[in-house]
Design a protein around this nucleic acid. Structure first.
Lengths: 138, 138
DNA sequence: GTTACTGCAAAGCTTTTGCACTGTC
DNA sequence: GACAGTGCAAAAGCTTTGCAGTAAC
């Protein structure tokens, strides 16, 4: 664990509710803490952390990856995402999450035995238009 | 509806079970039918079809978008995806799909009223390692 | 000295944009 | 003639790779 990596972890751990950082966001924050860190290291560290399962990588359809701490390292509970295709707003939700997780676990087991997969994770995302975007469309 | 667009639709409609075409795949197939079609038109047509809701755009984490016919235009029923992070294999599954859809619809309604979203679609994907990749890892 | 990690610059990829050309109404 | 659709080439954007330098053991 070098300093560069430590800074990346610190940035990710300090993410505010509702933030969904891209590699560049993380780079800028890390750069603020230690200006000697390069973007390349950010990408390499993020890859590493994803492989270790410490963070999750998401794609919300805007052409850049976003990262957030995996469960357990985070204050919040497990959640899924609601994405506005108009303005790109991303909302974390955990309504019905227990029911969802129960069903997902069941599905996971079913898929695992049927297709011989070792399943490591899932993504559930809803897409739509937020109130503001729906109004401005008219 | 011009010829170029018609060819793209034809390609998508003729997709075999288990195929998940990228823009380039579609371009190559369309090019085979009519060599005068350019890649640009493929992208423009795909965008259009996505906006019309005739096809869905997916991201499976390999850096390129994939497209498939939306429900209704397709022989198969609604399904979700299981992705191998090792070799990129994508499996369509519809096990537990009725239960999943029921819960997703309920969640959709809940999110819609809670966050004021007009929800247009969802993505459910499981990630993991297929049997072959799990073996070759060792 | 070997190894792991680094920044910088360059390259790689998919996707988008500018522009002139074509055909249609 | 306005307009929508097109191909080609160039640009854009995010991400990865090559390479030489540095620090740790």
């Amino acid at each position: 664990m070098t300093e560069g990596r430590e800074v990346v972890v610190r940035v990710l751990a300090g993410v505010k509710e509702g933030e969904h950082l891209s590699a560049e966001d993380i780079f800028l924050k890390a750069h603020g803490i230690n200006p000697s860190i390069g973007l390349t290291s950010i990408y390499r560290t993020l890859d590493l952390l994803v492989q270790l399962g410490l963070i999750n990588k998401f794609d919300f359809g805007d052409g850049r990856a976003r990262y957030e701490m995996a469960d357990g390292s985070r204050v919040g509970k497990h959640h899924h995402h609601l994405v506005c295709t108009g303005c790109g707003t991303i909302i974390d939700y955990d309504d019905f999450i227990d029911e969802e997780l129960k069903l997902l676990n069941k599905t996971e087991e079913g898929l695992s035995s049927k297709f011989g997969f070792k399943i490591t994770g899932h993504i559930v995302q809803f897409y739509g238009t937020c109130r503001r975007c729906a109004c401005s469309e008219r």
